[in-house]
Each structure stands twice: as C-alpha cells, then as structure tokens.
Nucleic acid binder design. Structure first.
Lengths: 144, 144
DNA sequence: GGACAGTACATGCGCATGCATTCAATGCAA
DNA sequence: TTGCATTGAATGCATGCGCATGTACTGTCC
C-alpha cells in the first residue's frame, strides 16, 4: 500500500529524528534552566553571546542588528522584539547607526555582560548533559 | 576578563551551533513547504507518520495519545491541540479508549493517509536539501 | 463502599514566533 | 533636484507553544 523509503531516504529520516530529539532535549532544558535562574530564553542567551564575541573579537564594542541577524536563527521581526526585551531588561543598548541611519547598533551593558558570564556555566552544563552523553533524558535538571 | 571555554566545552558549543543551524534550516523549510502545499505543519506531518507506522507495523490500526506522546517532542497540551487540528481537518479520528476510558485512541482516516502519502516525497526532498548537502541554504524552495 | 493519590487528556492564559505591512533612510537615475 | 527601487528595522496580526489548571477516570488502601 505505502511505498517504502529508499535506503538513502531512510538514513535521512533517521538522521532527522536524531537531530529533532537532540534539539528538543537541549532547547527544552536550556529554556527552562536559563529562564528560571537568569530570566533568559535560549535565543536571548545566544544573542548576548554574539555580542560578547563581537566585543572581545572585533575590537568594536557595538554590533549592528543586520550583522547579528544571520547568526541567530530567527525572523527579522522576532529578533527585533528579542532585542527590545533585552533592552527593557537593561542588558543591551540600542543606538542609531551613524554611518547608515536606518541601522541600529547594539551595545552590551555591564549588566548584560555580567548576566552572560553568570549564565554561561549553566548553559555549558546543559549542553554537556543533553549532547555530551548519548542523548540526555528529555528534561532533567542540572546539579547546580 | 571573560573566562574561556575549555576545549571540551568549545566542542560542545560548536556541535550545538551546528545542530541549531541544521534544525533551523530543515524546520523552516519543512514548515513552509508542507504548509503551503499540504496545509500541514512539521509536527503534524510527524504525527501522521507515526500513525501510519503504527497502523502498518502494529497491526492494530489505532494508537493511543499516550503512546504517541513520547515520540513527538511536544508538550502534552500542544499535542492535544495538534490532534484537534488534525481531527478538524478530517485526517484523524478521536475515539474513547474502551480499556481505559481516560484514554483517546487515534485512527488515521483515508484522507489522512492520502495526505501523508502525498506529502511524504516533499518531506524527504526537503530533508535531502537541508541535511543531505553540507547544510543547505537557509530557506530555499525545492524543485517540484 | 469511600476517600485519595495518580493518570489521561482538555482548556485558559500569556508569550514568542513568523508573515505581511509600514515607515524611515539610502542609493541611483533622469 | 525629483522620483523610485531597495534596505533596515518596527509593528499589527494570527498562530502555535508551554505552564498551570481543570475534568474525568483508574487503582489502591482503609
């Protein structure tokens, strides 16, 4: 009745299901833990991390939203609102870009950097639990 | 100022970012394509697939929601509503479980099986584009 | 039998997301 | 200069999600 997948397709499906399981386990635990203990969502942490990297690496301490966008897997609107949340929380500053006044440059505040540094160990621990082991259990709490 | 990740941590982070990118690429394209052409979300397709597998394999043509739940990475409430959508679309039937009247047994309708069979090639094609190649471009449309 | 903890699913609610649209600023062409 | 397509970001809206809770049923212990 139903046609079967070719071996190649079956492999892809298996790979996809594994990816889904790992992603769900890690994302669920990250959102829960980072949210509970630091008031950050997974993507919020990701954005803070990009800003920290941008500051430390580029020398320039400000990052344009349009530069940030391709590195986080969010729609433009979702990123815009996420930044608004971070700004409201006092973790980043939004300023007009002088070179191109359509653009917005983001600056990590001291509070933003501190929050990131505090949250990072937990983030790494969750990754270790969910990706390091052979697929950690669905949604278990880390030790700390 | 900022402490560095250990090599092990750096590896985990790289693995996590790769996983995020693959997941985003595949999930985005699956949702868009399956949605546009078949009115199905990624998880909806996943549930239909579990039902098809349950029918073909188990011999029993009905699956309990509680059996389905652990295989899809959704909260119980999200799954409940997803099933409601599928039922509303005429793709599955909800019936009370005779053995345990708290439970709900799901049956794939003929329309549900047809929809799945029609959508499957596109699903496989998207997986091939996004996972088969070395990380396909963010959100490109497949050929068919 | 009756009380009570546990399980299976549904629902109210708030929130984050994506799409479509809008607004402002830029670049280019006539 | 004016006009127009393009780009960067914000916003209205609909939708799907998770959490907390509610409802119905089961099994156990007294």
């Amino acid at each position: 009745m139903a046609e079967l997948d070719s071996p190649a397709e079956a492999g892809l499906v298996a790979q996809w299901r594994d990816l889904l399981a790992r992603h769900a386990a890690a994302a669920c635990m990250l959102d829960r833990e980072l949210g509970d203990r630091f008031g950050l969502g997974m993507s919020e942490f990701e954005v803070l991390e990009r800003l920290v990297e941008g500051c430390d690496a580029g020398g320039g301490h400000a990052l344009r939203v349009s530069e940030l966008a391709p590195t986080v897997h969010l729609s433009q609107s979702a990123l815009s609102r996420l930044i608004a949340r971070l700004e409201k929380a006092g973790l980043v500053t939004r300023a007009m870009c002088e070179k191109d006044r359509r653009g917005i440059v983001l600056t990590l505040t001291e509070a933003g950097r501190e929050r990131y540094e505090q949250a990072r160990p937990l983030h790494r621990e969750v990754l270790d639990l969910t990706l390091g082991d052979g697929l950690g259990k669905p949604c278990e709490a880390p030790s700390g």
